[in-house]
């Protein structure tokens, strides 16, 4: 019973250590630390995003990610944002199982079978096709 009492009073005893030093300030409570916690949390989230971004663009890592492969091929061909977006649209329109198939299939750039929104971009598609094939 004595041991239980001792354990229950131990945190209090530890908190009181240093109370009577001349230079000791006001005793801190858990409430005083919330700002530090928020900063740490934000920093963690930022780090996580950075790591995620790094992994996303690190093509040397072993993985099985069809869209990452798509991005890898976009990088190989130095495609700009507009072309990448157009290529994604073509891929989706064609319903390829593997997005990167669009890099190996010149016929997928033919206007036939594409939705009207893409058919209007026939000129851009032709340019993109000449870039990839």
């Amino acid at each position: 019973m004595n041991a239980v009492n001792l354990l229950s009073t131990l945190p209090m005893t530890l908190a009181e250590i240093g109370d009577n030093f001349p230079t000791s300030g006001k005793r801190l409570d858990w409430k005083d630390l919330w700002a530090y916690g928020v900063v740490a949390l934000v920093a963690g989230i930022v780090a996580l995003i950075v790591v995620q971004l790094r992994n996303r663009n690190d093509m040397s890592q072993r993985c099985d990610n069809p869209w990452k492969l798509f991005r890898e091929l976009c990088l190989v061909h130095n495609l700009d944002r507009a072309n990448q977006r157009l290529l994604v649209q073509v891929t989706r329109a064609r319903g390829f199982e593997q997005p990167a198939q669009v890099f190996l299939n010149p016929a997928s750039f033919e206007p036939m079978g594409l939705p009207p929104s893409l058919r209007d971009k026939a000129e851009q598609l032709a340019k993109l096709r000449s870039l990839l094939f």
Partner: peptide, 17 residues
């Protein structure tokens, strides 16, 4: 260039592609 990249890629999705 696409084939070379697919041949060397560490991404296993290259095989089904």
């Amino acid at each position: 260039k696409s084939f070379d990249a697919l041949a060397k890629s560490h991404n296993e999705a290259a095989t089904p592609t």
